[in-house]
Each structure stands twice: as C-alpha cells, then as structure tokens.
C-alpha cells in the first residue's frame, strides 16, 4: 500500500513488491505482459528462410516452471523492434529449453535471424490450448502439415516419438512448395527409415533431384488406409489448406471431433484481450490455437 498525492491509500501493482522470493509460476503471473530474458543456445539453418532456434530461460525458477503442450506458442520479444507469437516446435518431453522454428518474414524475425548463440531475447508464455495428447493416447495419429505448419505439429510428432509405446500407427503427410523448402530434413530422413512412422512427403514444384510425390497433400492422403474409429487427425498449414484436408479426413471417415487443427492469427497479447487473433466469438490465443473441426465449424469465419 502507498499514499498518493490525493492522500488515499491504494494497492500498488503486484510486481512492485516481492515480499519473498517468488516461484517461477508466481513471477510469470505477476505481469503476464512481461517478457523474461532467454538465451539463444543453438541455431540451425533449416531452409533459406527458416531457422531452428533453441532458447533457455535464464532464471532457473522460470525454466523449472515452464511446461507446455504440443501446439502452444510463446511471444518472443526483441525490444525496440517488437514482439511475435511463435509456436513451440520442441516436445514437452524435453524440459529446460524450447525450440522455435522461425521464418524470416517480418521486422522481428528478420532481427532474430541475424542473432547469434548467446544473444538474449524476451520470452513469455506458453499460451493457448494445444493438441489433446491425453485424448490422443492409445490411438492412431494422422498428421497433415503444409509449409511452416510443420512447426507446431512437430512438437506433437516428437512427443509421440518420445512416448512411442503409448500411440498406435502414426502417419505423417507433409507438403512443401519445393524440395529445398522441406524443413527438418534430417528428422524426416530418420522417420522414413523407421517402421513405426509412415511418412509421405510431397512438393508442389519438384527439382531435378526430387524422386518423391508431386502435388497437394490431399493426394497422398487418398492412398492411406486408416481406421477412422481410432484415428486422430492433426492439421496445420497455410490458410487455403484446411478446407481440403479436413474434407479429405471426413471422407476417410474421421469424426468431426477427432480432427484437430492449429490456426494462425496474429496473437499480440496471448491472453484473450487485444482482439487481434479473434475469429468469430473465439480467441485463437486462449481458446486455440488448436481447435477440433466441430469447434471450428461453429466459429464464424474460421475456415
């Protein structure tokens, strides 16, 4: 409490006074707008436009308190330039760091792409509702991603990879514009040789070396033999992709509420307030970004 010039005592905002060392969760809850310093600990070039960053929160209380679900996102700050929402691409089974796959597409990501290991950014989150891994457990999984849409579902795929015995058949369909746009090539190489991952890569525009499928992601989907009653779908990609992929999943017999998709919007606050990510009556940042098809059908303007 303090007195102001009017003489009235007021409650000062909670971040002002810290009577005792707070836990990580308490620190984050004091002011969820506050980005916390995180260090870049690894940078891998994925394509000409995308890099994979590994970040570690510097304060160990925050690092311990940070738990995410596949499909959730964080807000990354470069002070002076701005803040961007980026989905977490590492699995929650890996603690102590997070990986973000960042495309160079705006002012903030452009600066991030110039950063080096050891540089510090601001990080807050995780935000949103991810893929329902507990519901998905024990079922077959059909993942369909296009372009940068691989980033959030990679978190799910890696989670399944680490908890492989808990899941049934796993099928991954990934479409890119060109072979050189394919992200996580190493990982796809690895999955390709594993029997417990059924991998289908396709590109829009092949080059001379490409010996894989050509065309949109719905083409390889047509050849799949899945059991719709125990399959969950996970979809993420560019806006135009959703309608065709979910239609194909419906044709395959997967129920509305077993098809999950992650939406891209500009989540500025991450807390269901600023309004930028609204679709119909929902906020992608708190109600999503992952919705099932039934929910999405009930949101005006979703697909």
């Amino acid at each position: 409490m303090s007195n102001n010039r009017y003489g009235a005592s007021i409650d000062v905002p909670a971040w002002r006074e810290q009577p005792r060392p707070a836990t990580g969760a308490e620190l984050m809850a004091q002011n969820a707008y506050r980005p916390w310093p995180a260090r870049i600990t690894s940078i891998k070039e994925l394509t000409a436009h995308e890099k994979l960053f590994e970040f570690r929160l510097i304060d160990d209380r925050l690092r311990d308190a940070f738990h995410h679900e596949p499909g959730q996102f964080v807000e990354v700050s470069v002070f002076g330039v701005g803040e961007v929402p980026i989905s977490i691409t590492s699995s929650p089974t890996k603690q102590g760091f997070i990986e973000l796959c960042i495309r160079r597409t705006g002012a903030v990501t452009e600066v991030l792409h110039e950063m080096q290991c050891g540089d510090i950014v601001g990080l807050r989150g995780p935000f949103g509702r991810g893929f329902p891994v507990d519901k998905m457990r024990g079922n077959d999984i059909l993942v369909v991603a296009g372009g940068l849409g691989i980033a959030p579902v990679r978190s799910l795929i890696n989670y399944i990879h680490d908890e492989r015995a808990d899941f049934g058949k796993v099928t991954i369909v990934y479409g890119s514009r060109t072979p050189s746009d394919i992200m996580f090539r190493d990982q796809f190489e690895m999955w390709r040789h594993r029997r417990d991952f059924d991998l289908h890569l396709t590109v829009d525009h092949p080059d001379d070396d490409w010996d894989g499928a050509v065309g949109v992601v719905t083409e390889p989907m047509k050849t799949l033999d899945i059991n719709p009653r125990n399959t969950y779908g996970a979809v993420c990609g560019p806006p135009v992709m959703y309608r065709f992929v979910v239609a194909q999943m419906r044709r395959m017999g997967i129920s509305y509420d077993r098809i999950y998709m992650s939406f891209e919007r500009h989540m500025k606050c991450g807390m269901g307030k600023c309004g930028h990510c609204q679709i119909g009556h929902q906020y992608v940042c708190i109600d999503g970004p992952v919705f099932n098809y039934w929910e999405a059908k009930n949101i005006q303007g979703s697909i």
Partner: peptide
C-alpha cells in the same frame, strides 16, 4: 529513421 536503422514491427 530508427525503424530503418533497427527494424520495427510497427
């Protein structure tokens, strides 16, 4: 000018 020098998502 600063946006040009340092970048800005404004």
């Amino acid at each position: 000018l600063q946006s040009a020098l340092y970048g800005s998502n404004h």
